Amino acid sequence: MTLLSSTYGKGRVRVMRVAGEGEGEGAWREVRELDVRAMLTGDIDRAFTRADNSTTVSTDTIKNVVNVVARENLDAGAERFCRAVAERLLASYAGMATATVSARETRWNRLAVDGKPHPHAFTRDGNGFGTAEVVMDRSGGRVSSGVSDFTFLKATESGWAGYVKDPYTTIPETHDRIAATAMEATWRWERDPADFAAANARVLDTMLAVFAETYSHSVQDSLYRMAKAALDAVPELDTVSLACPNKHYLPVNLAPFGLSADNRVFTATDEPHGQIECTVGR
């Protein structure tokens, strides 16, 4: 039997790059999130046919190359980033003949608050969908509106500190992290607004402005204040219920390569995630 072709590499290398200058409330950030696949061909056949790994580069090493190139190319678009990774792989490993690097980009649109672009808050392109529900019996009915899978993030001005610490605790405190979530939200109407569409837009805009414009001590802290602001802004509301997974972007450890991640390069994780839920009423 003959090995007709062979390739290998690393898939689903999810990397978030954060570019920009300044610190604190007005810090300007650009975010680029890619799902990268890097595949190699070359002098690798013996790993398949002879159980000989002596010419094979670890796929974990390929992942590390992607992250190092990410730190060195914070602003590069997807095409230039893929080219930079491919060039680095071929320059680093003489036994490789080709490097095929592809990427899918999660597009983030800069959030506008009061018509002005926010410096470090974003919503996902093609974001979520609206929901409505009516529960009715012979005595009357209740109407709820909401959004599902509405995804947004802020690239700074968020922290997690002062929590319970015991022998099971491993996560370190931080005062500067990415806060991101895909929100399931419903708000129940005490009475009908004059215009459901306009009122729903006001609820969402109000909550996003609170998220973007204020420091987040936790997702819990932000959700309560977002819901409270929505109730204050729209008097026809009775309750606001929010369920938000804490979508984690974890800083990549680049110290082994002589680089500091410096809250600029992150890996995205979906599971496990924090699940934060609350209902706020009058």
Rank of each mutant, 00 (worst) to 15 (best):
A76D: 11
R50M: 10
V18A: 05
G42K: 03
E30Q: 10
G115N: 00
V85M: 04
A47S: 14
G95H: 05
T49V: 12
R46W: 08
M96C: 13
D114F: 00
R124E: 07
A97W: 08
D125L: 03
K116N: 01
Y93T: 07
A38T: 12
R71N: 07
L34K: 09
L111A: 05
L34W: 14
V65F: 12
H118I: 01
D60R: 09
A132M: 15
M39G: 12
T49W: 12
V36G: 03
H118G: 01
F48W: 15
C82W: 10
A99R: 04
A27W: 12
D125H: 05
T98C: 05
T123E: 07
M136I: 09
F129Q: 01
A84Q: 01
A103N: 02
G140W: 11
G146N: 01
G22F: 07
G20Y: 11
G22C: 11
A103D: 03
G26S: 02
G126A: 03
D52I: 14
A70K: 00
T131N: 01
W108R: 10
V143F: 09
A47D: 09
V66P: 00
E105R: 06
E105D: 08
R50F: 07
G130W: 13
E105I: 04
R29S: 03
S139Q: 12
S145I: 06
D75E: 13
T61V: 06
V69S: 01
N67R: 10
N67C: 14
N73Y: 03
A19G: 14
G128N: 00
V18L: 12
